[in-house]
Every structure is written in structure tokens, then in C-alpha cells.
Amino acid sequence: MTTLDQIKPGNSGIITKVGGEGALRRRLLDMGLTPKTVVFVRKVAPMGDPMELYIRSYVLSIRKEDAAKIEIEVKQDVTNTACACRKSKQR
């Protein structure tokens, strides 16, 4: 069990719990970051933050401080679309 901000680019996990409160939390849920959803971390921005996620067939960016409020169960060798392999080669 870890949090989303700890996931390295090229890896995925399954959301187990969404923390935070108020507008932020609602926004996370509305954008599809709900429990049991698979998230793939594509990359981080040039300055190291925010991070780029692939979720529910679209691309979402989210700040690390907010990602820290999302609990994740790490999935080993996930074949979440081809981009996973390409990205990990690049890094």
C-alpha cells in the first residue's frame, strides 16, 4: 500500500482510497479517480511536478501534493496499453 505520488513513471496501480476534502476530493472523484480504478503514471512535468496520469482512457494531470491523498495498491507488470512499455524504455 502506497500513495499515488510515490508511483514512478511507467508504473500503474489500483486506487484503494481517495482522501482530501471539499472541492479537491469531489474533483478527483468526478474525474474518475474512484476506488478500484487502474491508474498508469505516464510521466512527471519537467520541474518534477505535476504528474501525468492515464486513467479511464484519457490523460489527466494532477499535483503531487494532491496525488499524495490517493492510496494505491501497486500492480506488478501491468500491461496497461502499449505506452507503458515505451515509456519505461525511455526512462
Binding site: 479537491l24 474525474m31 484519457y58 489527466l60 494532491d66
Partner: peptide, 12 residues
């Protein structure tokens, strides 16, 4: 007040 959360779609 709290700023709008930065949870932003990167559209195609």
C-alpha cells in the same frame, strides 16, 4: 480561499 484544484485533463 482554496484555489481551484489543479486536476486538469490533457486533451488529445
Amino acid at each position: 480561499g482554496t484555489s481551484m484544484p489543479f486536476v486538469m485533463e490533457l486533451p488529445s
